[in-house]
Design a protein around this nucleic acid. Structure first.
Lengths: 197, 197
DNA sequence: GTCTATACCCCGATAGAC
DNA sequence: GTCTATCGGGGTATAGAC
């Protein structure tokens, strides 16, 4: 067995493949699949254009791999909710703040592009289906029902409420709030007013 | 002076140039400047690829012209607010519904792309600056102040409130609500909860 | 006025040098 | 393992036929 580096994770992840993935996530999240150019990703990663193809067979494959990771990450975040303590209100607030933090934000935007952009490869679409809203986003529905039964959340069909909630988050993420470096507390508090009674 | 057609506006606007502009707005609003292809615009307009260049010298020019129109349209909508009757709450509600209707929605999304997309030509950026937020979106600030003084709107810096408000609208527009054919009343009512006390 | 054909460039992907 | 050079496809824009 070849020796494993005993450095901290950050350095471990600094292999070429990880560097390129990280750069790609950043560029894809900002511009989407089509507007993102391999030359941009290579520049962001600090490698030559051609090298990316030694690690990934195509731009689409790179995109698909990142979508896969984003879906797994989303799944993990959702499962974490159930372990959170506190009232439904507190749980939703914590979850929202998690989603808005820088690392999750990139994944979230990537998934948004994967969902709405035209010309996304079939393979990606199939992955999105298998992790369809029912199985990911929809996992929040129990939390909403719980909140409504506890009298904390406002009335209405939970899926409608949930849909609205994600619309707002999307809108917030798209804005580059000037001078806001991951400080979303105020915005989240405001967002809560939408859901709470 | 050459004879002016005396048909209704809709038919008047059906000249080739207007057809192409209309198609371009639709495609740009959906995909942005870079992902939009002249071939898509031509197809949407029902003309050949090359013909667009008889009416517009480049894709960028076509984009810039539409941004100009969008800005003028936004300006006009904002000026209409002051003529609206009713409380600040009623005015804001009416304005929001106007923005979300299909024709304004395309303009709104176009402006969003013009603002956030990379690689937008300098000419467009200059137009956006001259119609900067201070002169367009910021015209809503008096309405917010009015609402706060009347005790209808929640406290907080008006510009922050306004920013949040537009974030939400953006998020809503981006979602294709299934089975929602321009029926935004429920969503707007919910959105109002954000602003109202 | 409108369409078809084509010049030219940018980008995705590969080949080959080091 | 990484870079540079290059091929091929698709997209913008133009030229020329009808």
């Amino acid at each position: 067995m070849k020796q494993i580096k005993d450095q901290k994770p950050e350095a471990l992840a600094d292999g070429r493949r990880e560097r390129i993935k990280k750069a790609a996530l950043k560029v894809f999240a900002k511009r989407g699949l089509q507007a993102a150019k391999m030359s941009m990703i290579a520049e962001e990663a600090g490698v030559s254009q051609g090298l990316s193809y030694r690690y990934f067979s195509s731009k689409e494959e790179l995109f698909a791999i990142l979508v896969q990771e984003a879906l797994e990450e989303a799944q993990a975040s959702l499962e974490d909710i159930s372990r959170l303590t506190g009232s439904p209100k507190e749980q939703l607030r914590a979850f929202t703040l998690t989603m808005l933090d820088e690392s999750h934000k990139s994944y979230f935007m990537l998934l948004r592009y994967a969902q709405i952009e035209e010309g996304v490869p079939e393979k990606t679409n199939q992955m999105l289906k298998s992790y369809s809203p029912d199985r990911t986003m929809g996992q929040l529905i129990p939390l909403f029902l719980q909140g409504q039964q506890a009298g904390e959340f406002s009335e209405g069909e939970p899926d409608k409420l949930l849909f609205f909630y994600f619309s707002v988050i999307t809108g917030l993420m798209l804005q580059d709030v000037p001078g806001n470096y991951g400080e979303w507390q105020n915005e989240v508090d405001r967002l809560m007013k939408l859901i709470l009674k």
